[in-house]
Simulated assay, not measured.
Amino acid sequence: MARRRRSRAARRRWARHLWWGGAVALVLVVVSRAGVWPYLLGVLLVAGAAAVAWRLWRTDRFVRGRDRLWRQEEAVKAGRRTLAGVDTMTGTEFEELVAGLCRRDGCTEVRRVGGAGDNGADVLGRLPDGRTMVVQCKRYAPSRAIPTRELRDLLGSQVHFRADLAVFVTTSRFTGPSERFAPAHGILLVHRDHLGLWHNGASLMSLSEVNGRGQGDARHRARWKQAYGG
């Protein structure tokens, strides 16, 4: 029994000797290759700085994304006023509303120019794709229909301002001839129903996919007249 204990103690002593011998050997190797350490330290520092920069970039991207989403949601919520509220606006307030919706959709250089001597334009700006636009805003009673004559005036304004796109926004509707005239001459129509969609978060250019349409069939127009008169 005593012999077995001495054997185990001897093995532990040999293990300690081997461990210390390995540690000493490692120190000797490090000392003998001291010239490598500045380069290794430099690599470690660069790697650490890159890791920190990547972490900061990811955090900034996450925060910016959350902020952008919040702003979009708030813009949509702000647009959920009823069109009845829009009907009570002055002409100037309606033009400011349209300009604000354009900015919300990413348009730039947007400014309201409506007033005396406006040359038929109420809002000017630049679409997200870089094209210029001229916008005519008409806050009419819902029962009133926009005739082709007013669209022709907008075409003249487009030529005057050398705009790439002409947009007609109204709280009412367009006559049948106006609906057919606009797409044929590159005018984007935003009638009352489309204005409601735009106001509730749809983008302006998404409405171009249904340009000249969306005012419904005869039954829809009958309900319209029943609701608004005219």
Score class of each variant (00 low, 15 high):
2 A>V: 13
3 R>W: 14
3 R>H: 13
5 R>D: 12
7 S>E: 12
8 R>K: 14
8 R>C: 10
11 R>P: 01
12 R>N: 12
17 H>G: 07
18 L>S: 09
19 W>Q: 14
20 W>R: 15
21 G>Y: 05
22 G>Q: 13
25 A>K: 10
31 V>N: 08
31 V>F: 11
32 S>G: 14
33 R>S: 04
34 A>C: 03
36 V>K: 08
40 L>E: 10
42 G>I: 01
42 G>N: 06
43 V>L: 15
43 V>M: 14
44 L>Q: 15
46 V>A: 15
49 A>Q: 12
49 A>D: 15
50 A>W: 10
53 A>D: 12
55 R>M: 07
55 R>A: 13
56 L>V: 14
56 L>M: 12
59 T>F: 12
60 D>A: 14
60 D>I: 10
61 R>Y: 06
65 G>R: 13
65 G>C: 07
66 R>M: 13
66 R>Y: 08
67 D>Q: 15
70 W>I: 09
73 E>K: 05
75 A>V: 08
75 A>M: 11
78 A>N: 07
80 R>H: 09
87 D>E: 14
90 T>I: 00
90 T>C: 00
90 T>V: 03
94 F>W: 09
95 E>F: 03
95 E>N: 02
95 E>R: 09
98 V>P: 03
98 V>K: 01
99 A>M: 08
100 G>C: 08
104 R>H: 02
105 D>M: 07
105 D>C: 05
106 G>H: 02
107 C>V: 00
108 T>Y: 07
108 T>H: 12
108 T>S: 15
110 V>L: 08
111 R>H: 06
115 G>A: 02
116 A>F: 12
118 D>P: 06
120 G>V: 10
122 D>M: 10
124 L>R: 02
124 L>C: 06
125 G>W: 03
125 G>S: 01
129 D>G: 04
129 D>K: 07
131 R>A: 04
132 T>I: 09
132 T>C: 06
133 M>S: 04
136 Q>T: 11
137 C>A: 13
139 R>D: 04
142 P>Q: 03
144 R>A: 06
145 A>W: 13
146 I>K: 05
150 E>V: 14
151 L>P: 02
151 L>H: 00
152 R>Y: 10
154 L>T: 04
159 V>T: 14
160 H>R: 14
160 H>N: 05
161 F>D: 07
162 R>I: 00
162 R>V: 00
163 A>C: 09
168 F>D: 01
169 V>D: 11
169 V>H: 11
171 T>I: 07
173 R>W: 12
179 E>A: 05
179 E>Q: 12
179 E>R: 15
179 E>W: 04
180 R>E: 15
181 F>Q: 05
182 A>G: 01
185 H>Q: 13
185 H>F: 03
187 I>Q: 01
189 L>H: 04
191 H>E: 12
192 R>I: 00
194 H>E: 14
196 G>D: 11
197 L>Y: 05
198 W>M: 03
198 W>R: 04
198 W>D: 05
199 H>F: 02
200 N>V: 02
200 N>P: 00
202 A>P: 00
203 S>L: 09
205 M>N: 00
208 S>K: 13
208 S>M: 06
209 E>C: 10
210 V>C: 03
214 G>Y: 01
216 G>M: 02
217 D>W: 00
219 R>L: 09
222 A>E: 12
224 W>E: 04
227 A>H: 09
229 G>E: 01
